[in-house]
Design a protein around this nucleic acid. Structure first.
Length: 413
DNA sequence: CTTCCACGGGAACACTGGGGTG
DNA sequence: CACCCCAGTGTTCCCGTGGAAG
């Protein structure tokens, strides 16, 4: 009896006609077998990389383009094909993908590479030179070509371009193996920051991935929807609307896919058999608010405190750093945390700005110095609820309330 | 021309989690 | 075991700099 009832909650759900056939295809991490509107770039890459199939080292490639323009997908796609053909022809050629946003230090990259070629290297502890030496020795045992795809290379370089420099000149130390690099950058001004030596060698070949326009996005979504959704569940205007939203934001295919997938999820959860325009609109707001909640929840404690301080000063639109810092000191006292220096807090403020949670503008107020004007970019209630759900910061809740009671009294520093 | 506030670069330091060596 | 080396991260300390109000 009870088991039946328990079963019933699932059978009830199973009776709802599924919306998705294969949700994986609708994720932006999935590499499809066909990439519409990127034929030119793929051909260009193939043309450069084909020398690997003749046993020569291909030129290094730099790929530029904003997020969601298919850079990663194309590079992986071409890489996979190259590996396959090389294997058929009896060449040893491996394509390695590294995301510079995740593996982001010199040591970790080389250690990761070494481990891929079955060389045991500890996570930490060794001098970097030693890891280099071991890695070089290992790969040089075989005649082979290694192509390293370095995604988000701009993030990597921010922490020092030594890695790139070392990787680029590694070939001169190698007898049998050769390494060639495909760098992928979201930032079009990336090359300006580079050391000229690196620039010339890394940018032997450059490819530009322009943003997709709305009609191209429709094609992309169409192909994926074909595999990802059950037949006939998508309303006619769903795909064009997703495409239009994403096209408005620099033609981001990742965004378009997210919209489509989340719209599907929303429809499914509300028990609808079809996905309609309204679900896309809901998806649009859901994605944005999820993103912000996620960012807020994972903020380090002191960043949360700084953000709270910005908010607690009463939503004045043009706060200065000094005011925020004073409020921050009070918050620290209320929570019993030891405060950071103002220097550090300005950095935290800049980080919050970068994340789009607050917006800042540097202004010169003449006689009254130079500062940042700071204002909130997200609703206060969201911030308050998430920040006070952090155990260590719970006291702030009652703190602001008591502060409001005594509003008007000066805050002592 | 001076003055003011904080920006933001850079060096130095502390600390962590992991080596290897005697 | 003790001891020192290494990379990496977060922080503090120091300081030159900007530019309009006064």
């Amino acid at each position: 009896m009870e088991a039946e009832m328990l079963g019933a909650i699932f059978t009830g759900l199973l009776e709802v006609k599924p919306v998705f056939k294969d949700k994986e295809v609708l994720r932006s991490t999935y590499t499809p077998d066909h990439l519409p509107h990127r034929e030119d770039q793929i051909k260009a890459m193939a043309y450069i990389l084909v020398s690997a199939l003749r046993g020569e080292t291909p030129s290094n490639i730099m790929i530029y383009g904003k997020t969601g323009t298919g850079k990663t997908a194309c590079a992986n796609f071409v890489g996979r094909q190259l590996e396959q053909v090389a294997a058929e022809q009896g060449y040893k050629c491996s394509v390695v993908y590294i995301n510079g946003g995740i593996i982001d230090t010199q040591y970790r990259i080389i250690a990761y590479l070494a481990r891929l070629f079955d060389k045991d290297v500890p996570m930490t502890g060794w001098p970097t030179d030693q890891v280099y030496a071991e890695f070089k020795a290992t790969i040089d045992e075989n005649e082979q070509i290694i192509i390293v795809i370095l995604d988000e290379i701009d993030r990597l370089v921010k922490k020092g371009d030594e890695v790139l420099y070392n990787l680029l000149r590694i070939n001169s130390d190698l007898k049998r193996a050769k390494i060639s690099i495909i760098g992928i950058s979201n930032n079009l001004q990336f090359r300006e920051f580079l050391d000229p030596r690196i620039k010339s060698s890394l940018g032997e070949e450059e490819l530009l991935f322009p943003p997709y326009d709305a009609t191209q996005l429709v094609d992309i979504l169409g192909e994926r929807a074909e595999i990802g959704f059950e037949q006939g569940v998508l309303g006619d205007s769903v795909i064009p609307l997703c495409a239009a939203f994403a096209a408005n934001e620099h033609g981001d295919a990742r965004r378009a896919l997210d919209l489509l997938r989340v719209a599907g999820e929303i429809a499914e959860r509300s028990g609808k058999a079809n996905v309609e325009e309204e679900h896309v609109r809901q998806a649009q707001t859901k994605i944005e608010s999820d993103r912000i909640k996620e960012i807020l929840a994972t903020l380090p404690t002191h960043s949360k405190l700084v953000l709270y301080s910005v908010m607690s000063t009463g939503g004045k639109p043009h706060l200065t750093t000094g005011e925020v810092y004073r409020a921050y000191l009070n918050c620290c006292r209320a929570t019993g945390m030891s405060p950071l220096t103002q220097r550090r807090v300005t950095d935290l403020i800049s980080e919050l700005d970068m994340l789009g949670i607050i917006s800042t503008k540097i202004v010169n107020k003449g006689r009254y110095g130079r500062t940042k004007e700071i204002s909130m970019m997200v609703p206060q209630n969201v911030v308050r609820s998430i920040i006070t759900s952090d155990l260590r910061l719970k006291v702030l809740d009652s703190y602001t309330q008591s502060r409001q009671r005594t509003l008007g009294e000066e805050w002592d520093v």
